[in-house]
Design a protein around this nucleic acid. Structure first.
Length: 307
DNA sequence: CTTAGACCTGA
DNA sequence: CAGGTCTAA
């Protein structure tokens, strides 16, 4: 049994709950202040008490593993200063201070975000849990059962009909094809990791390395949350809703409107252009800016769905 | 290169 | 409709 206390006063502002609710991680079980899930393939229970982060596990895990996964030693002040470009961003940073881009496993994020497309957060949580139940490792702590992220090889070897039983719907064929491709090429992940952001984005969405079911938005999520490529700026419906506020004055607003209405869909070219604007404004921390904008947008336009 | 529809499922 | 992508035209 391992019990680790981390003194958060040594690090920049950190908020576990905000991280877990930021839409970058799915499949963890939440009971009160405790979060159950797998960290570096090890089942853990994580909770936060003011200035302490508490991690319990019945297997071996180190403080460094935890610092790395939650990115505790990130220089958030530097990032926040860089992306605080207007009142909207200032407010978003103030409200969602303590957030981090986590360092999840690349393959796990590929699975997560292929499944996440065109679903709402509760549905995503449910799907990921169902897939983990079938293709992931089982664990139990404090009488609570939870599952690790799905094993990609197991998925690759299974039948479409089996995957469909998880309620994943039409994404099943995407997941199977992607699982097969990554399982067949043991160097796939390393290749993406070694590429510059833009090359990696192109590789995953076009050409020989393309993953079926991975478009620009999903690829950006994977590169940001799974590969820690902070230039990635995933543009989903929430970012589109808030784009006008977050990046006012930095782009030609005609690009986002049709007949006076806000566009709800972007062409590949438009998507890349909007991302480039964000990267020009927020520099190499575009991904962090995206997290703040996403959270602010949900609380502004998402009704009661905010936390 | 752009743009409608279709697409599973469930809240 | 939902943190989109694929396909055909």
């Amino acid at each position: 049994m391992t019990l680790i206390y981390i003194d958060l006063k040594r690090y920049f502002s950190f908020d576990l709950k905000k991280c877990m609710h930021s839409g970058q991680i799915f499949g963890w079980k939440n009971f009160g202040k405790k979060w159950y899930g797998f960290l570096n393939k090890v089942p853990v229970c994580v909770s936060q008490e003011e200035n302490k982060l508490i991690v319990v596990s019945n297997k071996s895990i180190t403080e460094d593993d935890i610092i790395y996964f939650f990115n505790l030693d990130e220089d958030v002040d530097k990032i926040n200063k860089k992306i605080d470009v207007n009142d909207f961003m200032e407010k978003a940073i103030e409200l969602y201070c303590g957030i981090r881009v986590l360092r999840q496993d690349p393959v796990e994020t590929i699975i997560e975000f292929v499944c996440a497309q065109n679903k709402n957060i509760p549905a995503i949580q449910k799907t990921i849990t169902e897939i983990s139940k079938r293709y992931g490792e089982k664990a139990e702590m404090n009488g609570i059962t939870f599952y690790g992220k799905p094993n990609i090889r197991k998925i690759a070897k299974s039948k479409l009909s089996e995957i469909l039983e998880t309620g994943i719907g039409y994404r099943a064929k995407y997941l199977l094809s992607t699982a097969e491709k990554i399982s067949e090429d043991s160097t796939y992940v390393d290749k993406i990791r070694s590429m510059e952001y833009f090359s990696a984005l192109n590789a995953m969405t076009s050409g020989k390395m393309k993953l079926y079911g991975v478009g620009l938005k999903v690829a950006d999520c994977i590169l940001l949350y799974g590969f820690y490529k902070l230039e990635a700026f995933p543009i989903d419906v929430w970012i589109l809703r808030a784009y006008h506020y977050a990046l006012k004055g930095f782009y030609d607003e005609n690009l986002l409107s049709v007949n006076g209405f806000r566009k709800t869909k972007l062409s590949r070219k438009e998507y890349l252009l909007m991302g480039d604007v964000a990267r020009k404004v927020f520099g190499k921390y575009a991904g962090y800016a995206q997290l703040y904008i996403y959270l602010a947008s949900r609380s502004l336009f998402g009704g009661s769905k905010k936390f």
